[in-house]
Amino acid sequence: MGSFSNKLSFSKKLKEASIHGCFLVNALLVILVLAGIFALLVWTSFPAFKEISIKEFVFSADWNPTSYVKESYGILSMLVSTLMVTIGALLFAVPIGIGAAAFISDIASNRVREIAKPVIEILASVPSVVIGFIGITLVGPYISKVFNLPDGLNAINGSILLGIMALPTIISLTEEALKSVPKSYAEASLALGATKWQTIIKVRIPAASSGIIAATMLGMGRAIGETMTVLMATGCANAMPTNFTDSVRTMTSAIAIELGEVAYDSTHYYALFAVGLALFLITFAVNLAAELIFNKKQKQ
């Protein structure tokens, strides 16, 4: 025998190398898609900035692309609207999410845990358009009654819905963060005579904090980018909001509403892509921050 001392036969080598190459190209695709999304957004929004100064785009609250007098393209009010519903969502989803996660991971019996986890997964799989529909049919009327408003399509409604949508992410990631806290921490605390409750609040949750913050950031990224729920449930008034009971138009819903009606190759069309670019950059930054926080935690 001894045939192995020959070079690997050319055809076999070629076959293996080309299979390897195919998978490599396939993997390259993901980089290409991400870079492609960014590049196409930049490329398509570029013409908009021939007409609009970046300063106006970012700092003006006046978005009026169809004005007969003077068209204006300021995204500040959308930006504020987006931030408002996002913060509103987190205000309610973070404490409830952490509480639920702590209960599931530290207190609940196995049986409760085994039921609760898939049920929460179910929530994650409800399409956003259905959540938006619930906002219209259920949450809206309730808000209008409580706050005595003509209708309940406003920032509060959007916040509640986005909060509901962020809950599964926050709960499952927080639970994971709690799970990864070394047992010895809790044992040390309990051995010192602390109650289980004190241990959860003073030792386990602080120890898992960076994971919880990362979970919150991911939930936030999702809320910023969510379209259908805010489109359906916030009323979409194009104005600077002053109050949570105001109707708001977020960046996502502005794109969703206006792109369908706009003339191709108009400044308005390009400006909407610029909004998309801004949205992409913001979510990118939020997700990157989440990742950095998460990595820092893993290194410790």
Partner: peptide
């Protein structure tokens, strides 16, 4: 050696 036929 680098170009050995590992399979064989």
């Amino acid at each position: 050696k680098k170009d050995i036929d590992v399979v064989q």
